[in-house]
Write a protein that binds this DNA or RNA. Sequence first.
RNA 1: GGGCCCGUAGCGCAGCCUGGAUAGCGCGACACUCUCCUAAGGUGAAGGUCGAGGGUUCAAAUCCCUCCGGGCCCGCCA
Length: 603
Amino acid sequence: MIANAKHQLSKLISLATGEPTELCLKTLEVAEEGKGDIASKISFIASKKMKMSPVQAAQEIAAKLESHEWVKKAEPTGPYINFFLSDSFFSEVCTKILNEGKAYGRGGNNRRVIVESPAVNPNKPWHIGHLRNALLGNSVANILEFGGDEVQRLDYIDDLGLQVAQSLWGYLNSEGKIEGKADHWMGAEYVKVASKMEQDAIVKKEAEGILKQMESGSGDVAEQARKLTEECVRAQYETASNYGVSHDALICESDILREVFKEGMQKLKDNNAVHHETSGKNEGCWVVKLGGKMSGMEDPDKILIRSNGTATYTGKDMVFQLWKFGKLNGEFNYEKFLSNPNGKSIYITSKEGKRKDGFGKAELVINVIGVEQKYPQEVIAHVMGLLGFEEEAKNSIHLSYEHAWLPEAKFSGRKGTWLGHTADELLEEGQKRALEKVKGDFEDDEKKEIAKTVSAGAIRYAFLKIAPEKKLIFKWDEVLSLEGDSGPYLQYACVRARRIMEKANFEPSPQPHAFNDDEKRLLKELGRFPEVVQDASRKMRPHIIADYIYNLSNVFSRFYTNSRVLNAETQEERKTRLAMVVAFEKVLSSGLGLLGVPIPNRM
RNA sequence: GGGCCCGUAGCGCAGCCUGGAUAGCGCGACACUCUCCUAAGGUGAAGGUCGAGGGUUCAAAUCCCUCCGGGCCCGCCA
């Protein structure tokens, strides 16, 4: 809506100055507090042709502006022209949001998009670091979907890693008994075995032997590995579910190797994208030559197939990327695995499953992976280009993020520094803290449910409000903050709005009304939502949404404190303000939905 | 050797893409504020050489260059 206003204003300015409307549009921005509603800095540009100072120009231009039903007045202030919008404009913002409801702010993109996240090894619980990835991927998927895209949320399961073999070794050597939540048990086992392996060559050999049998794809060990893997993933997805993270399909590495790997590599060979080294230190390997594009490196070659014939991580990921873009004939079989919190099924690839349409064949592929993998991700995009897939190379997005750190050091899966910092424990601790703040006469169960919702909201917001390239140093008090710039603050604002709506016994509808400053601020902010969503979608940055809804709620809280709704003086005022509350609730719940912050009914 | 990211108030961040009005916010610390839609709220005051230096510009936190501090990458690991 603000975009519409800007558009109208740019036409007026263009008429007054003779400058093109596009240029005039660029000079417009939402004005600072107390300086009108929208400001233009056109005078800095127009003053040159007018041969006068920007301050003089502003006065000249303001005097020449035609009137418009949305403009109450246009006031030159120094070199700026400050536009004060009319009550009819504010009224229209409100009406529009009420009419469009949940659809308000939705975009018209229509791409087929894959978001891959978080690809946690299936032998340990999610810790705080994995959580950042999962939340980022989940939120970006939400945002793109809201922008109109058709989004597939995929997860990559590395079921053939040494890590799984190590956990399996532990399983086989401990009477095969899993105690507690499977992912936690396997993680602890993995840490033990990893340190044993360092000291004991026999253990190392045995674990490697297990891996070999897993890779063969058949036999008891392979079957046990698959079973154990699935059990772990189920446990991890319990965590995901508690955090409101949903997926559509899990793609297992073993299935990539079985179904599409050969074809993918053949394609690379046929197109001379990879070369077989017959001498030198990479003798026997298939490598990608990166000399031209990525110069300055000591060794500008990237190995995709080792001399022993096995694929490197980048090799597998390369082929997977081809599949994501629908460049391979090979397909996976799927079976139903779990259900998302929203009831939709989660599928997993498997040998015995059935074909299923709807996955892959994307035009935009977003891989949510830590910054440290920038280089291999660049290689993958580069190779897409070598195959002649220029568009796909451009649309191979590495959505990178800095890691979550402990104050002392980085997380290490192998060393087990994550112990005590799993996503499950974080949620629990948050729930405990929130529980202390829940007042009101709720049943105990209800209280716990509220506290859990508050905790999940606090954590999701705390992770998502920070730009992904910032290192996230984990501190309990900051992540679980319940006040100020926090998830619970937003939940609270939403709950308060809903309470007003519940208690109202009349219909919300904007009436002829002289909007006060608090009301204008609120409507102006509400009017920005579509632009904000577009920006966040284009940049794939959820913190833009976080910033916005925090600011929006700030403005609402002020309105809430100063302007009575249910017992406002006149009937017109009551109806108009209630309409604003409804509009706010719509936009805030949309915004919270994009971040995946759940909203309690009461708190 | 080459490349990427971060540096804004005591602490944690937004703003940088797309340059413009006295640089915003939260936490912490200070002072107010619940006979009235939930005080997980609101208000006020305090706190900043935007890492340093140069350049471009009428105008630089924002663009360019150099340097400093911190982190990461350039594996037949994942």
